[in-house]
C-alpha cells in the first residue's frame, strides 16, 4: 500500500493565542478526493494551511508523503521546491492569490520561483492558458477579471505546476451557479481523476459530486468521517455542526404559510433547475471575501 499523502497526529495549532486546531488526527490517502466540512471557525482553513506547510503545528506531527513536514525541512531549498511542486493551494479569496499585474505573470510566477528555464515557462503558460480557456485574458490585469475568471486564473496558476495534491479553500464561494459547475467539472476531470484533492467547504451541494471521503470538523477537531452518503444522511450530525439550519420560509405548495423546519439539500444541483428545494435551500451565510 502506498504511503498516504498526508498524515496528521495529534496536531495542535494556536492562532494569536486562540486554539485553532486541538489534537487533530487525520489520514489523507493518495488519489482520493477529500472534502472537509465544518462551520466557520471550525479550523478547516487552518488545517489546509498546515497541509501546505504555511503554518507549522505547535504540537503533534504532520507527515507529507511519509516524511515529517516541519520548518526545518522547508528551510532546505530543494526539499521546499520539491514539496511546492507536488502540492498546490488555491486560496479562498482570489484577490489575495492573484498578486501579479497580469494573468500571464500570474501563471509564470510559480514556475519562475521554481527556477524553470524561461523557454519552458513561456510554453507551459501558453498551453495552460489554452487548456483552461483563458487565452483571451492573457494580458488582462486581475482587477479587470470577473469573479469566476479570477477563480479560474487562480486555479490555473496552481495547476501549471502539475501538482499531485490540490488543496482548495472554499473554491465555490461567491461563484455563480454556472462558474461553480464549470469549476467542479474541471476538478473532477483533472489528471484523469487520479490526483489527490483536499477541499474545505460548507457548500453541501457539491459534496456528492466531488468527494470520496467526507471529514466533518468542529472546534478544531475531526468529529466524523465517512462516505458522502453516510455523512449527508446523518441529519443530526449536520444540524449539530451547523452545516444545515432551521429557518423560516414559505413553501409555494403549502399555500404560502410560513413554518419552521430543518433543511437538507444535496444531489439535485444540476438535475432540477428551479426546483422548490433549490429555491428554499440557502447555503449558510458565506463569509465575504473581505472578512476572510
Amino acid at each position: 500500500m502506498t504511503v498516504p499523502a498526508f498524515e496528521l497526529r495529534d496536531v495542535e495549532y494556536r492562532y494569536q493565542g486562540v486554539i485553532a486546531l486541538a489534537g487533530l488526527s487525520l489520514v489523507i490517502p493518495q488519489g482520493k478526493r477529500v472534502v472537509l466540512l465544518g462551520a466557520n471557525g471550525s479550523g478547516k482553513s487552518t488545517l489546509l494551511r498546515l497541509l501546505d506547510a504555511l503554518y507549522f503545528p505547535a504540537a503533534g506531527q504532520v507527515l507529507a508523503f511519509g516524511e515529517a513536514l516541519d520548518a526545518r525541512r522547508m528551510a532546505n531549498e530543494d526539499a521546499c521546491f520539491a514539496f511546492r511542486r507536488r502540492v498546490g493551494f488555491v486560496f479562498q479569496n482570489p484577490d489575495m492569490q492573484l498578486f501579479n499585474a497580469s494573468v500571464f505573470d500570474e501563471l509564470a510566477f510559480g514556475p519562475l520561483q521554481l527556477h524553470w528555464p524561461a523557454e519552458r515557462i513561456r510554453q507551459q503558460v501558453e498551453t495552460t492558458l489554452e487548456s483552461m480557456g483563458l487565452a483571451h485574458l492573457r494580458n488582462r490585469a486581475p482587477h479587470r477579471l470577473s469573479g469566476g475568471e479570477k477563480k479560474r486564473v487562480a486555479l490555473a496558476s496552481v495547476l501549471i505546476l502539475d501538482p499531485e495534491v490540490l488543496l482548495l479553500d472554499e473554491p465555490t464561494a461567491s461563484l455563480d451557479p454556472e462558474s461553480e459547475s464549470q469549476l467542479i467539472d474541471t476538478l473532477i476531470d483533472w489528471g484523469g481523476g487520479a490526483k489527490t484533492i483536499v477541499m474545505a467547504t460548507h457548500d453541501l451541494d457539491i459534496v456528492e459530486d466531488v468527494a470520496d471521503i467526507c471529514v466533518v470538523m468542529q472546534q478544531g477537531r475531526v468529529i466524523a468521517q465517512g462516505t458522502p452518503g453516510e455523512i449527508l444522511g446523518d441529519e443530526e450530525l449536520l444540524g449539530r455542526t451547523g452545516l444545515i439550519h432551521a429557518h423560516r420560509h414559505r413553501h409555494s405548495h403549502s399555500g404560502g404559510a410560513a413554518h419552521r423546519h430543518h433543511h437538507l439539500h444535496h444531489g439535485t444541483r444540476s438535475t432540477m433547475p428551479g426546483a422548490t428545494s433549490k429555491l428554499v435551500w440557502r447555503p449558510l451565510p458565506r463569509r465575504k471575501p473581505e472578512d476572510a
Binding site: 501546505d52 504555511l54 521546491f81 511546492r84 486560496f91 489575495m96 498578486f99 505573470d105 524561461a118 496552481v158
Partner: peptide
C-alpha cells in the same frame, strides 16, 4: 491583513525571497 495573506500565497507557490521577472 492583505500583506499577510499575499505573503502566504507567494510562499505556497515557491517564494523564498528571490525575485524574478520574465521579460517577454
Amino acid at each position: 491583513h492583505l500583506a499577510d495573506e499575499v505573503y502566504l500565497a507567494m510562499q505556497s507557490r515557491g517564494y523564498r525571497g528571490e525575485q524574478h521577472a520574465l521579460l517577454e
